[in-house]
Structures are given as C-alpha cells and as structure tokens.
C-alpha cells in the first residue's frame, strides 16, 4: 500500500499528462491521435537505445573505485592530475548537483582548485554514458564536435575561475566544504 502510494506520487506528473492527452483525444481525436503517435515513436526509439547504456553505467559504478584516485589530484599533480580530473568527472553518472557533494569530499582531501573545476566541468557535460547516448540520439558528428570543443573550454573556464578568485576566497570555500561534511 505504502509502496503503491510512493509510485503513484512519483508518477503523478506522468499520469496527469496521460490524462490530459486522454482528454485531448476525446475532444480533438485527430490531434490526440497525432500526439500519441509522436510520443510512442519517441518511446520506442528510447527503449531501444537506453538498455545497453544503463547496463554499462551500472557496471562502471560497481567496478571503478573513486576514493583511490583522490590522492593523485592534489597540488603538484600536474598533467596527471588534470587527466584524472577529466576522467573521474566523465566516468561519473548522475545530475550535476550530484557532483557538488563529491566536490566537497575532494576539497577536504586537498585536491587542487583548478582540478576541482575541471572535474565539475567534465561531470557537467562530458559524462561517458551521456556521450554514448548523445551519439545515439544526435549523431556521432554532433557529439564528437561538442566533446572536442568542451575539452579546451573546460580547461579555459577552470583557468579563468582560478584567476578571478583570490587565494583567500578559494581557501574560504575549502574551509566551508569541510564543515559541510561533518
């Protein structure tokens, strides 16, 4: 019963939308039919594209450890730290706001500020499962072009942010992050 209620709550917008399309179908059969056709076509495509990606995402999550990489990304980690920041960010899964708690842990462990920003940038827009999905929906050319522009773009943004913030401001953000974890 409780579980059923939960499901009902989670799907309430989907159900409302379905009901709205149902009403549309009654009032304007032609338009309603077209809306249903549009939607089912899209759903078919999605259910074909999605399964392998989520499988890979699950495997990635289980097999790739995250904590061990942290120590390679601090001050003086150089190009290795930059590469790792890109890698960890793009191996992640989940929305951007999921990256902020991870960022807090990274700050506590002392990862370099520019690496932190690279990690955030990679998480936001270069996640591998998303990239696979982007290729599937918008084409290989589109996804590859965006990726090629994103890499220098993320580096530039990280660099600019580091220049725009004083060392003291960065220090304060790091200190605040520590209090967020306890």
């Amino acid at each position: 019963m409780k579980k059923g209620k939960m499901i009902l709550k989670r799907y309430r917008f989907a159900l409302i939308t379905m009901a709205a399309v149902g009403v549309l179908l009654l009032l304007q059969p032609q338009i309603g039919m077209k809306a249903i056709q549009n939607s089912t076509f899209q759903l078919q495509q999605m259910f074909f594209v999605i399964p392998p990606i989520f499988l890979l995402l699950g495997l990635l999550d289980v097999w790739v450890p995250k904590t061990t990489m942290v120590k390679y990304m601090g001050e003086g980690s150089g190009i290795k730290g930059i590469l790792l920041s890109f890698l960890i960010g793009s191996a992640a899964a989940g929305p951007l706001y999921g990256a902020f708690p991870v960022a807090a842990v990274f700050m506590k462990k002392g990862i370099k500020f520019s690496n932190l920003m690279i990690f955030i940038g990679a998480w936001s827009t270069m996640k591998i499962p998303m990239f696979l999905f982007e290729m599937g929906s918008l084409g290989v050319k589109f996804a590859l072009t965006r990726l090629a522009v994103d890499i220098p773009g993320i580096l530039m943004i990280a660099n600019t942010l580091q220049k725009m913030l004083t060392a003291k401001e960065v220090e304060e953000i790091y200190q605040k992050a520590e209090t967020l974890l306890d």
């Binding site: 989907a14 939308t17 939607s39 999550d61």
Partner: peptide, 24 residues
Amino acid sequence: ALKKAWKSFENILPQLLTMVLLIG
C-alpha cells in the same frame, strides 16, 4: 551492477514519460 542499472533507469522513468508526452 544490474540493480543499479535498473534503479537509475527507473529513477528517470517518470520524468521521461512526462517529457515525451508533453513534447509529443
């Protein structure tokens, strides 16, 4: 891993359905 795969899919399913219907 399979459980995670299913869960992360089921997590977005409501938004997916709503979005597809709305855009459709």
